[in-house]
Design a protein around this nucleic acid. Structure first.
Length: 898
RNA sequence: GGGCGCUUAGCUCAGCGGUAGAGCGCCUGUCUUACACACAGGAUGUCGGCGGUUCGAACCCGUCAGCGCCCA
């Protein structure tokens, strides 16, 4: 016997372990079944499961479990990402706590340490995914830094380099002065900062006392100014174009140039140009062939080596000694010193409060410095073209389609992708430098040496590039590198392209776009057919969850409290496309109640001799009740399937919720009770047969969303072996004879019971009081139908009998109008006649309102002429029905008039 | 500044051309032997404002307002 309530904590770990051990989550390329493949968005190896992962992986698991049950050879590829910066930071912090430092220990020792950390702590998130119930194919688990994937990375790098799509370039990059590495445009987060706009005066050469005023938010970079730009059509400065200003403090002669970049409306109309420290200035510098001295070192401290020779002393303008004193100063300290000096020289005109956007590193969180450095770049624009085309032609479809615009906007204006990082943890770039600086990009050191020998005629010492690749470079290969590429494995042949990618919109650029580019370039085919984009999980007030706000909901804690099934069901039910999810504990309580409801329905079945009957044939069902529930379960199957095909997890969840709770429990089991508790016989056998069949359908339909409670019941009730449900066949619709007739029959009974219940409740009739039902005006077939269901009506409507009223009704009746029939409940002494009159009048008025609306519609000649015929017909029928009802209500009122 | 999305019952959200829906909450009643994480019943909406298209608009188009996100 099942316990009174189910206890998820007691069963989840056991059930998962059994399935995993039985290998039911494993794909098999040798199986003839059609594939269904999803690759997991690899979580950071440093990560632990947060609510966003819970959503993302629940949705994937629902799809995978569903397709697996449909008989597909389903592969859900697990793995983690080495997460360059994040992991390096974690291990560096660990070292710091031990009083150690990365540089002091050296690269090799540090990397050994990271691997040791990974071996010890890297499995956290994969353990947590198991608690969620994620049916990943664990034996295939991969890591972006493992041997095979690293080989794929080298292969891709070398190939793209030989194709000219990866190259070295010296240009401005976003430099993180805290992490001391270049980062890509995408890792830049612009933050609004309340700062100051300073107006500086640069003296005009040869005209003492005349100045050009420039506005800047970054006075500390002025040491690297090599021009002042004004708009070519700005009359105020026309006579200055072509002349020179004297750069304060430094004494450098800098030209006043005309460039449309300078906006006459902004600031003073003149801007200082610092090509090595500002992206816009860099472009101006390029256009005008300006020198580009760097005046900040990697840690954003002042450095003077590139301008040392230019330092001069000009009274009232430049002071070489002062500038030298800035060397090594941190950028914000230098800013302060420079402003003070300018003020002292009367070259600082004003300072105004100014709010502006300042680029920050998304990892380090400090303001970035544009820095002129050599880095490796990937020609994303070239790779993007086929990816754009693939989405345009529908080879890959975004769901919701809306997101394709976001994808296009990014891809059509894509910039060169800076792929080198000045870190140690990651894939080291396979490039070696010869003594003359020539670069050899090869798969191995041996090949690089051979290439060098071929070039120089003898062996030379090669120096390997120290940098590693952007983490997203290896992630971009994930859909094929995990399948064994560059080997031509059976897995690659069978599962690529994968079917679906499920992810959040925040990584469309980082990851989806890059997988599209690399997949198309190296596999010649898109990496996935559908990209399902889900929303962000927020707290119940709609605020983003964050540690600092303290509103984080920990999925593991939620699983402990409500069970994994309830967490999963909640996430599915709330996953409306294109919307963020506002998650609340209250919602989760509601869906835990649903799991309990299912458990108790199964318990009821068990108590009433409802056991699995594998050979039971639904087509043999004769009774209306059996046919009705079988037909309803067919509808539920269709609804669930349609929803999942469209990635409508919310629709799937609500359709199943309704069917199980309202259809199966509230009506079917209630109707079944009189039969089940009555004498043995064919009727009971048939109801038991239908019940076991439909319960089996329910357990399978719910399994993708609620794998644990369904599997526990599946096994406990005897539907199958342990670990059997994940591979049980997805339910097929059962053939049902004359389903229409059964539907009409049950609808008539439900209607009667509902109406009688409503009347009783409104009249405050105590449930303990049973009454006869007196019927007037019912069609003979309806009467017959009700008679057949008398036992159920007796229980559910608390009726003692149902009989046709001959002659006048007794005094003190409450009445329910159902179409042509009127049902009366004799309640002499109990019924408050005034209340009953009020209730019936209210109903009458509502019906009359509705009738008026319909009449107006039918009175409109244009409606009759232009509306579709079925619509007109339907409207007429509605009017007829409602008119009849009004007449019955009037009659009922007349019967109890005072 | 550009782009996208949202605005429907107290709350969270479905519905996206032909009779306004669900869950929760609220109110009333009930230990009716599967389930009080339950059962039965009830109340609650000029579907953000305005204008247009249409026989007919929550739904399509325009416009305004408020909110949110992304990119400059």
């Amino acid at each position: 016997m099942l316990d009174k309530a189910f206890d998820p904590a007691a069963m989840e770990a056991r059930l998962y372990a059994a399935s995993e051990a039985a290998g039911v989550f494993s794909a098999d390329p040798a199986r003839p079944a059609a594939p269904f493949a999803i690759v997991i968005p690899p979580p950071n190896v440093t990560g632990s499961l947060h609510i966003g992962h819970a959503l993302n992986n629940t949705l994937q698991d629902v799809l995978v479990r569903w397709r697996r049950m449909q008989g597909r050879d389903a592969l859900w590829m697990p793995g983690t990402d080495h997460a360059g910066i994040a992991t390096q930071m974690v291990v560096e912090r660990l070292l710091a706590s031990e009083g150690q430092e990365r540089r002091a220990m050296g690269r090799e020792a540090f990397l050994r340490r990271v691997w040791a950390w990974k071996a010890e702590s890297g499995g956290t998130i994969t353990r947590q995914l198991r608690r969620l119930g994620a049916s990943l194919d664990w034996p295939r688990e991969r890591f972006t830094m493992d041997e095979g994937l690293s080989r794929a990375v080298v292969e891709v790098f070398v190939t793209l380099h030989k194709q000219g799509l990866i190259y070295r370039d010296r240009r401005l990059v976003n430099w993180d002065p805290k992490l001391l590495t270049a980062i890509s445009d995408l890792e830049v987060e612009s933050r609004e900062v309340k700062g100051t706009l300073w107006t500086l005066r640069y003296p005009i050469e040869g005209e003492p006392g005349r100045f050009i005023r420039v506005a800047t938010t970054r006075p500390e970079t002025m040491l690297g100014d090599t021009a002042v730009a004004v708009h070519p059509e700005d009359a105020r400065f026309a006579d200055l174009i072509g002349r020179h200003a004297l750069l304060p403090l430094v004494g450098r002669r800098i030209p006043i140039i005309a460039d449309a970049y300078s906006d006459p409306e902004k600031g003073t109309g003149a801007v200082k140009i610092t090509p090595a420290h500002d992206f816009n200035d860099f472009e101006v510098g390029r256009r005008h062939g300006l020198p580009m001295p760097t005046v900040l070192d990697p840690e954003a401290r002042i450095r003077l080596d590139e301008i040392e020779g230019e330092l001069a002393d000009i009274p009232g303008v430049a002071e070489a000694g002062f500038v030298r004193s800035l060397a090594g100063q941190e950028r914000f300290a230098a800013r302060k010193a420079i402003l003070e000096k300018l003020e002292a020289l009367d070259l600082l005109e004003k300072a105004e409060p100014h709010t502006h956007q300042v680029p920050h590193g998304d990892r380090g969180g400090v303001p970035l410095e544009p820095r002129l450095t050599w880095q490796w770049y990937c020609d994303a624009a070239t790779l993007a073209k086929p990816a754009i085309e693939a989405v345009e032609t529908g080879r890959t479809v975004f769901v919701p389609k809306q997101w394709e615009n976001t994808f296009f906007a990014w891809m059509r204006d894509i910039q060169p992708w800076c792929i080198s990082r000045q870190l140690w943890w990651g894939h080291q770039i396979p490039a070696w430098y010869g003594p003359d600086g020539h670069i050899f990009v090869e798969r191995t050191e041996e090949e690089a040496k051979a290439a060098a020998r071929a070039r120089y005629g003898h062996d030379v010492a090669l120096r390997r590039d120290e940098d590693v690749l952007d983490t997203w470079f290896s992630s971009a290969l994930w859909p094929f590198s995990t399948l064994g590429w560059p080997e031509r494995t059976p897995e690659l042949a069978k599962y690529y392209p994968t079917d679906v990618l499920v992810t959040g919109f925040d990584i469309i650029f980082f990851w989806v776009a890059r997988m599209m580019m690399m997949g198309l370039h190296f596999m010649g085919e898109v990496p996935f057919r559908h990209v399902v984009i889900h929303g962000l999980v927020r707290d119940e007030k709609g605020a983003k969850m964050s540690k600092s706000k303290g509103n984080v909901m920990d999925p593991l804690e939620l699983i402990d409290a409500y069970g994994a099934d309830a967490v999963r069901f909640t996430l599915c039910a709330l996953a409306s496309p294109g919307r963020d999810i506002k998650l609340s504990r209250q919602r989760m309580e509601g869906y835990r109640a649903f799991a309990t409801k299912l458990w108790n329905a199964a318990r009821f079945c068990e108590m009433n001799g409802i056991r699995p009957q594998p050979g039971w044939d639904p087509a043999s069902a004769r009774s209306a009740l059996a046919r009705w529930i079988l037909d309803a379960s067919n509808a539920a199957i269709a609804e669930a399937e349609t929803a999942l095909e469209a990635f409508r997890f919310d629709d799937c969840a609500s359709a199943l919720y309704r069917f199980v709770w309202n259809g199966f429990c509230d009506w079917f089991l209630e109707f079944a009770k009189p039969v089940l508790q009555g004498p043995d016989g064919p009727e009971k056998v048939e109801v038991q047969g239908a019940a076991q069949h439909v319960l089996g359908v329910i357990l399978r339909l719910l399994h993708p969303i609620m794998p644990f409670v369904t599997e526990e019941l599946w096994v406990r009730l005897g539907y199958g072996e342990e670990a059997g449900l994940p591979r049980a066949p997805w339910p097929a619709p059962a053939p049902v004879q004359e389903a229409e007739v059964a539907r009409a029959e049950l609808e008539a009974v439900i209607r009667l019971i509902s109406e009688v219940r409503a009347v009783r409740a409104e009249m405050n009739v105590p449930p303990s009081l049973v009454t006869p039902l007196l019927v007037q005006g019912a069609a003979p077939e309806v009467l017959a139908c009700w008679a057949r269901w008398m036992e159920a009506i007796r229980r559910l409507a608390r009726a003692s009998e149902l009989r046709v009223l001959e002659g006048a009704p007794p005094a003190g009746v409450a009445q329910a109008v159902l179409g042509e029939a009127t049902v009366m409940l004799p309640l002499a002494g109990l019924v408050d006649l005034a209340a009953e009159r009020a209730r019936l009048s209210r109903e009458r008025d509502k019906a009359a309102d509705e009738a008026r609306k319909i009449e107006r519609k039918l009175g409109n000649a244009e409606f009759l002429a232009k509306a579709r015929e079925e619509v007109v017909e339907e409207t007429r029928e509605r009017l007829a029905a409602i008119s009849a009802e009004i007449a019955r209500l009037e009659a009922a009122l007349a019967r109890i008039a005072d």
